[in-house]
Design a protein around this nucleic acid. Structure first.
Lengths: 114, 114
DNA sequence: ACCTTATCTGCGCAGATGCGCAGACACGCA
DNA sequence: TGCGTGTCTGCGCATCTGCGCAGATAAGGT
């Protein structure tokens, strides 16, 4: 039963899984998803992100804190403003894929192109 | 609300975001990540997935229930066994990207934690 | 019919999560 | 120095989440 790789298939290391899960869980929240998507246009301040995401600056700040801790975003201070940006273009790619997938809801019904 | 950019930038619809977040949250759990990864080798039964993921069949069944509800997997009954498979190859692509990203440690050893 | 195997489902609990609130902190300006 | 603005953080609460447990359900073999 326990097949480990006779066919070349193998489970990833527990640590890689844990890190990937953490990153994905960070993306698994509507507010954070909005924030990250907004960050794809470039560096943005907290208040601006809050407006774009349609929520409070406090909530955004807390989310950004988690995202920074998870290594998904970096920040840069300029005066009283703090500008955030995506730490890794891969994150942007994941966002695009996920939202594209959401845009193509899986048809449970067969629809033939005609 | 949403700013529709002059530069072509625009926030995605709240519904698309919610669906994408739901899908990503489904991927944001180590057990489910293991299960889904195991499913990339093809159709697999619940007990087998449990062994591959290193957890109990009950836990796996509950996770598969959620995944099926989220439309990420489909199931097929054969005798007393129930075989699951990925409902969408896009899911596999996301998994690969996420785990590859986890493989690359973003050597971003943080600004200052205070 | 009975038993075995494989899977599903309701229940309860410990832990995590999101967010509003209020206050603290950082920075620029007069 | 004091004030205003922008951001961060501790606290509390309502809610969600994953999992173990026990019982239910489905299908096949004797």
């Amino acid at each position: 039963m326990a097949h480990t790789g006779i066919d070349g298939f193998s489970m990833p290391s527990g640590d890689a899984v844990r890190r990937a899960a953490e990153a994905l869980r960070m993306l698994g929240d509507p507010t954070r998803l909005n924030v990250l998507w907004a960050l794809m246009q470039g560096e943005t301040s907290v208040a601006c992100l809050a407006e774009l995401a349609g929520t409070s600056p406090t909530a955004v700040s807390q989310h950004l804190s988690k995202l920074r801790l998870a290594g998904l975003v970096t920040n840069r201070r300029e005066g009283t403003f703090v500008y955030y940006q995506l730490a890794d273009p891969h994150v942007g790619a994941l966002l695009r894929q996920a939202l594209s997938h959401a845009g193509h809801p899986v048809d449970d019904r067969v629809s033939e192109p005609r």
